[in-house]
Simulated scan of single mutants.
Amino acid sequence: MINIVYRLKSPKFFEEAIDDIELNDVVVRPTYLSICQADQRYYQGSRPPEILSQKLPMALIHEAVGEVVHDSKSIFNSGDKVVMIPNTPIGEDCYRANYSTLSKFRGSGFDGFTSDLVSLTHDRLVKLPDNFDFEVSAFIELMTVAYQGIMKFREFKKASCKVLGVWGDGNLGYITSLILKVLCPDCRVIVFGKHLENLNLFSFVDDAYMIHNVPDDLKIDHAFECVGSAASQSAIDQIIQLINPQGTINLFGVSEYPIPINTRMILEKGLTLQGNSRSEREDFEGVVSLLKENPQLFSYLSKLITNVCEIKSIDDLKSAFDKDYISNFGKTILKWEI
Rank of each mutant, 00 (worst) to 15 (best):
E310M: 04
G270V: 06
P11D: 08
D324T: 03
H222A: 11
D39Q: 07
V82E: 03
N171I: 13
G79V: 02
R154E: 12
A159G: 12
M58A: 03
E268F: 10
S232R: 01
D39H: 12
L125M: 14
E282N: 01
P245L: 07
I61K: 11
K335L: 11
G112Q: 05
H212G: 05
N244S: 12
E22C: 04
I18Y: 10
I140R: 02
V28Y: 06
S100Q: 05
K323G: 10
N77Q: 12
E256I: 02
T248K: 01
F76T: 04
M58R: 02
F298P: 03
N294V: 11
E63Q: 13
E256A: 15
I243H: 08
G112W: 07
L178D: 06
T88A: 02
I175M: 15
M210N: 11
N262T: 05
V191I: 09
S302L: 00
T306M: 12
C309G: 00
A223L: 03
R154Q: 15
T144A: 11
K318E: 13
R278G: 00
A138P: 11
G66I: 10
P86A: 05
F156Y: 08
D93S: 05
P260R: 04
G330Y: 12
E293F: 02
I85Q: 06
L242R: 13
A59W: 15
I266Y: 01
S78L: 02
L33T: 08
S100I: 04
L317Q: 01
L178R: 06
F113M: 08
N244R: 09
I18M: 11
I35Q: 01
V65R: 05
S115Q: 14
L273G: 12
S119R: 12
H212I: 00
I21L: 15
R278E: 06
L56Q: 09
I243D: 15
A320K: 04
V69P: 00
T176C: 14
S103F: 07
N250I: 08
L317G: 14
G168N: 05
S119M: 07
K318L: 00
T101Q: 07
K152H: 15
K312G: 15
R106F: 08
D169E: 09
V26K: 11
D169I: 04
W167R: 04
S46T: 15
V182S: 03
L291M: 14
N200M: 08
E285I: 06
D283P: 02
V189H: 01
E22G: 13
F105D: 00
G168D: 13
V287C: 07
K162H: 13
V227P: 09
P258K: 02
D322S: 09
L290I: 01
L102W: 09
C161M: 13
T272Y: 09
V182N: 02
C184W: 05
L317W: 14
I175L: 14
I236A: 01
V126I: 15
N262M: 03
K152W: 09
I35P: 03
L128E: 07
L56P: 11
P258D: 12
T144V: 11
L218H: 06
S100H: 05
D186F: 03
L52V: 08
E197L: 06
A235T: 04
S100D: 09
L180K: 03
L60G: 10
